[in-house]
Amino acid sequence: MTGRWLLPALGLLVAALFLVSLVTGPAGIGAAEGLAALVTGEGAAGLVMREIRLPRAILGLAVGAALGLSGAAMQGFLRNPLAEPGLIGTSSAAALGAVIAIHTGLYAAFALALPLMALAGAAVAVGLILALAGPRGRALSLILAGIAISALMGALTALALNLAPSPYAATEIVFWMMGSLADRSMQHVWLALPFLGLGAVLLAATGRGLDALTLGEDAAESLGVSLTALRLRIVFGTAALVGAATAVAGAVGFVGLVVPHLLRRAVGARPAALLPASALGGAAMLLAADIATRLVLPDRDLKLGVLTALVGAPFFLHLVRRMGREGA
């Protein structure tokens, strides 16, 4: 596929999957009937469409785009195709925040406590990473700080599970961490969208710097790129995207890792061109995966994160094998 047609084609794919997501579900509403009800908002069908399926489809699109975009930005910044948006510790910190909300029962008292605690967790991770790696440090210090923070957050999450007040709470935590878009409301959408928008704006402006980094940090700086500013944009942008995505969807892995890989060749491997392509690709992948969770095992509540991992991991193995053969 040539570069010029890639973005429109991906855009059409996302739009089609968005519609399919709207008309897929257990309520047994016909496609035309459902879309009409979405517009009018009348009756039980209108309620289902507007309160259940619309937020789910919007979140699928937005969370997928967030993961794809932040994955492409993180790989470009770290100059490493194995980097993923969770690398700087924000997703594990957001997960810890959510787990604390479940553990303490706060989320039962106040519905938005869980996503708000997750966002707070992501903010703590940003503070920690800037304190550990310094605002001017280079890529390696960022990776090491991210690994340390992820390890700490993982340990604290395990502690929360270990000390869960009841088996029910433990189950709840485990299921939440598998990631899902089921039973989300427009409240989740309104909570997440500002952070997703902010993150997207921050990362959209990194294209030039990421392109220059193809030549290494020294050459990029000599081309007039401020590595300090680029790094802050990457850290804050990724944290806003991944923090908000985790807050409303739980931990959904592999999208941010696999999608940039899939599309890299199609954009001529240019990091700036990969950003929008990867955002659309991530949206398409997550919408498709979320539709699949409703079609494959409709009555078993298959979790979104489980599905993306099940599909993503073998696919990633295939990519790694191909890379190994090409020696690139």
Binding site: T214, L215, G216, D218, A219, S222, R264, A269, R270
Partner: peptide
């Protein structure tokens, strides 16, 4: 000024 560093870095298959 153009600067050509010693490390010959090409991160991506562009």
């Amino acid at each position: 000024a153009a600067w050509l560093p010693q490390a010959r870095d090409i991160a991506w298959p562009v």
